[in-house]
Amino acid sequence: MKILIPLDGSSNAERAVSYVVSQLGRWKEMPTVLLLNVQWKVATGNVKLFINQDTINAYYREQGMSAMQSACSILDAAHISYQYHISVGKPAEAIAQYAQEEGVDEIVMCRQGQGGVQQVLLGSVVNKVLHLAACPVLLVK
């Protein structure tokens, strides 16, 4: 059993982690918990002319790790093994892709919690993941 929890660094995403931790007793075997943070590919063509790839990658890594920090500490505190991963790309697509690559059995996620204008203009990652994912998606309210 592999459970993927995508994290965006918000407190909502932490709730998904806490939920998974609270539900772990449901499985006979300890499930594998995978954490994923997706960084927007902010450094495109022009930026690469001035900044080297190492610096860009270090930036993604730093941002990604800090987004997963609180989730990691929740899992550490609960003494649960986990894997973490940082992808660079579009969030929903990258989540679906990673889930496929890893053969994930279930994706557990929360809404980002943005409402109103933001929701309309920027859309929801959850909605897109529901469309793209090949495995069950559990939406934690």
């Binding site: 894997q83 991963h85 697509e93």
Partner: peptide, 19 residues
């Protein structure tokens, strides 16, 4: 179709209270 790039993979294994 642009694929997402896998940047970093890590693992934390809890072995008898030692991570």
């Amino acid at each position: 179709t642009e694929r997402a790039i896998n940047l970093l993979d890590g693992k934390v294994t809890v072995v008898a209270d030692k991570s």
